[in-house]
Design a protein around this nucleic acid. Structure first.
Length: 196
DNA sequence: AAGTCATACAACCGCCGGAAT
DNA sequence: TATTCCGGCGGTTGTATGACT
């Protein structure tokens, strides 16, 4: 079998630049997702396929929600985690627009602590507060790409805000049965909507 | 105002399972 | 049937940012 392209070339690591994001978005919009390992090169990215996939799935994909988790979302996470444990992708499939990575991070940053406290029988007055300092940043602006400094506010908040099509890719969106594994390939077809 | 600590989040790594050959 | 490749998953790490002293 043909080996993937990612050898010899020094692959970039670390945070994605806005330029790289643009390249990846443009490529996916144009050609869809066919093979992450092979796509990176023609897309003009010196990234591993895995890196590209991760960036897309967790950040660039339309429909991704960023910002605060609602109380309902948090409760869903807690409930499902109690039932099925650390199966973040399965949990994410029940939370449209949320990725497994984000849920995992949120769990470790907020909910686990709170859950621990609950188990230690803390007074029930413990409020369900979301990450305190962030204001809800999902729904407002409509710019295409943020300025260079994008590490915190999502580059695609606006992007996703305008692309509301549901995307069965990896871990979010469709209300999938817990045991089902959504397949990213399945959503390639829906990119036509995305392109529009 | 500067230094230190804690937190949140993006990204990487290694492993696994399914599909293709 | 065995092997290889790719995508997906969960765990972990690195770093930027904010809070505190």
């Amino acid at each position: 079998m043909a080996k993937s392209v990612e050898k010899t070339v020094a692959l970039r690591k670390g945070a994605w630049s806005p330029e790289e994001d643009k390249k990846l978005i443009a490529y996916v919009k144009r050609y869809g997702i066919w093979n992450w390992a092979e796509m990176a090169k023609p897309a003009g990215l010196q990234r591993s396929g895995k890196s590209c996939r991760l960036r897309w799935v967790n950040y660039l994909r339309p429909g991704i929600k960023h910002g605060n988790f609602t109380k309902e979302e948090e409760q869903t996470i807690i409930d499902l985690h109690e039932k099925i444990g650390n199966r973040w992708s399965a949990i994410a499939s029940r939370l449209p627009g949320r990725t497994d990575n984000e849920i995992k991070n949120h769990w470790h940053a907020h909910l686990r602590k709170r859950f621990k406290y609950d188990l230690n029988a803390l007074p029930e007055s413990e409020p369900l507060e979301t990450s305190s300092d962030e204001t809800n940043q999902n729904s407002s602006s409509g710019i295409d790409f943020p300025p260079a400094n994008i590490s915190r506010p999502s580059i695609l908040e606006s992007y996703s805000a305008t692309s509301t099509d549901s995307l069965p890719s990896s871990s979010s969106n469709p209300p999938v049965e817990i045991e089902e594994k959504p397949n990213i390939k399945g959503f390639i077809g829906s990119l036509d909507n995305f392109k529009a």
